[in-house]
Structures are given as C-alpha cells and as structure tokens.
C-alpha cells in the first residue's frame, strides 16, 4: 500500500516528473493531480499533452516544467499521438533499437477529451494501444474562460450557454465518459478526485499497469472559472464526492467497483454554493432546477450501485 510519505518523496527533487515554475493559476488542482499520477509509474513516463490548461502553463518557451519526455501537438489528438508513440515504442523495441521499459500517458482536459478529442480517444482505445489516458475534468473550456463542453454539468452557467432571463444555464446533463470508454472493453477505467491522493495514486498505478489501454477521469475544480477562493480547491473536490456528484469508482476488467460510499450523502447545494457558475440557481423561482439536479444525481447513484451489485460486466 502506498503512503502519502512515499508519494511526497516521488514528487519532489530529482525524481519529480513535473517541477515548479509552471504557470497554472494559484490554487489550481491540476498540479497535485498530474504530479500524483506521474509518481504512480514505476517506469519512465512519456507524456502526450492535448492543448489546454496543463499544456499552456507548463511549456512556455524557453521554460518547460516537464522532467520527463513530453510532447504537445494539437488539441484533439493526444490519444492518436500516444498511439503513434506506443507503436514506435513497440517497433523500436522489436527491432532492438531500444531496450528500456516505458509507460505512455496521454493527458487532456474535458474539452480535449469529451468533445474535440473524442474520436481519437475512441479509436486508440478500440485498437488497444497500451497507454493511459488521463482527463483532468474541470467541466468546461476553462483555459479560454469557461465555455460549455460535453462535461459541463446541468444548470451550470458558461459564457457560451449563460444563465439569463430565460436560461438556467446548460439544459443537458453531462456525458458519462467513464461508461462510454468502458464500453470499449478496456481493462481499466477509473474515476478519481484530486483531493483523494491515495485513491488517485492507486488508480493511476492500476492504469499504468493495466494490460491494455486505461482511462482515468479526475475531477479538477477550477478556482478561476468556478470562481472560488483558491484555498478551497480540495474542499470542492471533496464536496463533489460527498454529494455523489462525482462518485469514486472504477471498472476493472469490466467489473464495477464503487470505492467510496458516503454514509450520509450531502445535499447538492453544498457543492453548488459559492460557485459563480451556479449562483443563478439560488435565486427565487429556480429551486426546481436544484431539485431536478438532486434527482438526477440520486438516480445516477442508485444506478451505479445497481451496476456494482449486479456484477454484470461491462
């Protein structure tokens, strides 16, 4: 079992695969998220990064925060680039040009994953390249100032679907990426949250060690565009789990396992309050939106437990 001490040691000093001097916003959870995931690999990691917050803040020439082989190509193709790297790795290994072992990590935000990068991801999973795809999910295009994505939750106000006199923000529920990628019959899919370091680390380990493609989806509360005090990033992550808004679960070889079952799930208002994108929901007359949201969360949670209980494999 890993300990917080072991993880801390791996994320500091010469062993750190990502270092200080990056330009993420103060309090951004992507930092702890990516350093924890990278620490979970017992082999060198090659990172293929989609355009997004992580990419732009870590690679402004001539400064790079990466202490591991890293590449950015464009927005929608991190999984395809990873597929190319993995194919090169297998080819060069077979031909005796290299002998080292590596892990390959593709990483993107929700925009680069749920939306524009979805086809490349699906293709790479279907072809069973051995790599892990990490999505840090801040529920919209946060790098460019809070535009709607397929991961934006119901009721959230974004700059492209703002709340207004006749709008309560996004009218659709979010895409269920975890189940969609699990339908590719890949060996490992995990859903984690940035505040739960040990759970995140263990899931990243499983993903790296899986015998085939793995996907890790991690909620990443955005201090800038969800607009909360940067000190509260971990608190919002925790509340997302405690309200069942973002359950911690995994699908290992098709079998669903729910890692954390809050004994007393908190009402969704606990998560919503303090976030500018949900502020309109607390205006008189909009109570029904929160009621609807609560029902959807409870229904989804009940469904997830049933999936687990049934033992039916994905």
């Amino acid at each position: 079992m890993p300990t917080l001490q072991e993880i801390a040691l791996k994320t500091d000093g010469a062993d750190a695969r990502i270092v200080s001097g990056h330009r993420m916003c103060s309090g951004c959870g992507i930092g702890p998220l990516i350093k924890t995931v990278l620490a979970a690999s017992d082999k060198p990691v090659i990172v293929l990064n989609a355009t997004g917050c992580l990419e732009v803040t870590t690679s402004v020439y001539p400064f790079t925060a990466w202490n591991t082989p890293w590449m950015h190509l464009t927005f929608e193709n991190a999984a395809a680039v990873a597929a190319g790297v993995e194919s090169a790795y297998r080819s060069l290994k077979r031909r005796g040009k290299i002998d080292s072992e590596v892990n390959i990590l593709a990483v993107g935000g929700d925009g680069g994953t749920y939306d524009i990068g979805f086809q490349a991801l699906s293709g790479a999973l279907e072809r069973k390249h051995k790599f892990m795809y990490l999505v840090y999910d801040n529920e919209g295009y946060m790098n460019t100032g809070n535009q709607r994505s397929g991961a934006t939750p119901f009721g959230a106000s974004t700059t492209t679907v703002p709340a207004g006199k006749v709008s309560n923000g996004k009218p659709q529920w979010r895409k269920n990426l975890v189940e969609i990628v699990a339908a590719h019959r890949i060996p490992y899919v995990g859903q984690a949250a940035v505040h739960n370091t040990l759970d995140l680390y263990k899931k990243a380990q499983k993903g790296f060690n899986a015998d085939g493609p793995a996907v890790l989806a991690v909620l990443q509360p955005c201090t800038t565009n969800w607009s909360f005090d940067p000190a509260l990033t971990m608190q919002y992550s925790k509340l997302a789990v405690e309200t069942n808004f973002w359950p911690l679960y995994e699908i290992e070889n098709g079998v669903v396992h729910v890692n954390t079952k809050p004994s007393n799930r908190k009402p969704i208002e606990e998560f919503l309050k303090g976030q500018t994108r949900f502020r309109h929901l607390f205006k008189p007359g909009n109570e029904h939106v929160i009621v609807e949201m609560q029902k959807m969360i409870d229904d989804e949670w009940a469904r997830l437990l049933k999936l687990e209980e049934s033992g039916i494999q994905f």
Partner: peptide, 13 residues
C-alpha cells in the same frame, strides 16, 4: 487526422 497525428507521434518518438 489521427493518421497524421500518430505518424507525428511515432516520428517524434
């Protein structure tokens, strides 16, 4: 799109 992306990935590797 993925063809050239993966080709670039392989070449960069």
């Amino acid at each position: 799109h993925s063809a050239m992306s993966a080709t670039v990935g392989a070449e960069a590797a």
